[in-house]
Nucleic acid binder design. Structure first.
Lengths: 163, 163
DNA sequence: CAAAAAATTTAGCCGCCGCTAAATTTATGA
DNA sequence: TCATAAATTTAGCGGCGGCTAAATTTTTTG
């Protein structure tokens, strides 16, 4: 039985993958949000970040220090937060991943709690799975008749109303 | 802006939902595994459980005590672990959810690390999302030509080789 | 330009879920 | 049966990512 077909707990997988996985889920949340704000305003502040993520400023400070130590943020105490090149690259990836998951959920008919569903799922998706879900999205996009057929299948009676 | 379209961190969602979500991801891992063994052997022991989940026995004890306090296990110190009715019901649900996610991943073409991918994703899926993914699985099952078309779309050139 | 306000950081606590080491209970076999 | 082995539990630690309270720095304003 190889490492691959043995069971682990969520925590167990975390511990196993902490060599190759750079960021924890929490750090990813912060980096993704900083990236969003970079696109909008060009920079980020601790207070803005803590408001956007619904955490206390002290929590934001702690995470920003970690991301900074990892070379993803350009930042000094009491200062303005910018992304380094590495941070931008990672942030862009996180936002893309988010959008792939969200689009998939919309495709299969999720409307309630779309944001929170996406936010929770995105951290547990590998690049490979993300790529394959993206292919499924593209498949539906280029084959709208099939997506339509699925929707009829899913909810007979509501043929056209949703979407 | 309602609670629904605000961002939170993973930890934030955890804290928000701890009223309605009975179990943590970790507890779910243990309960699911106990359920698997119930089906196979009818009972569970701490050592077996810790081996199956690749944790130390002391960790298994701690979680079993928690699940027991929640009324999901029938268990006394140094004794054999059984599921209560509530535990069986929850365990059955967990196994079903696992299988729905796994089938979906297989459908979209995941072969590498299938188990770990499933194990990580399953905890972040709501009942609603699970139901919709299940519908997608059923859709592919009843429309094999469409699944086939997706596979060609996904991997042009490997038309028939996989599955 | 000094005092007050606002923003940020630090220190220290908590629950989760791993771990190790040591204690305890249960099972085995000479 | 009784000593040893095996299984299980307890105690206590560590990192994560929240929190509060208090300290510090920066900004605003009279």
């Amino acid at each position: 039985m190889s490492r691959n077909d043995r069971f682990y707990t969520v925590r167990g997988y975390q511990l196993l993958n902490q060599e190759d996985k750079l960021l924890t889920s929490g750090m990813e949340d912060y980096l993704e949000m900083i990236y969003r704000n970079m696109e909008k305003e060009g920079y980020m502040r601790i207070n803005t970040l803590s408001n956007l993520l619904n955490v206390k400023p002290s929590s934001a400070t702690k995470m920003v220090q970690k991301l900074s130590a990892l070379g993803l943020l350009d930042y000094r105490k009491y200062g303005i937060i910018f992304l380094t090149e590495a941070g931008k690259k990672y942030g862009r990836f996180l936002l893309e991943r988010h959008n792939v998951i969200e689009k998939f959920l919309v495709n299969i008919g999720i409307t309630e709690n779309l944001l929170s569903e996406t936010e929770l799922i995105e951290h547990s998706i590998s690049k490979n799975t993300m790529a394959n879900i993206d292919m499924l999205n593209r498949f539906f996009e280029t084959h709208p008749a099939i997506l339509d057929e699925f929707r009829k299948f899913r909810e007979p009676g509501f043929e056209k109303t949703d979407e």
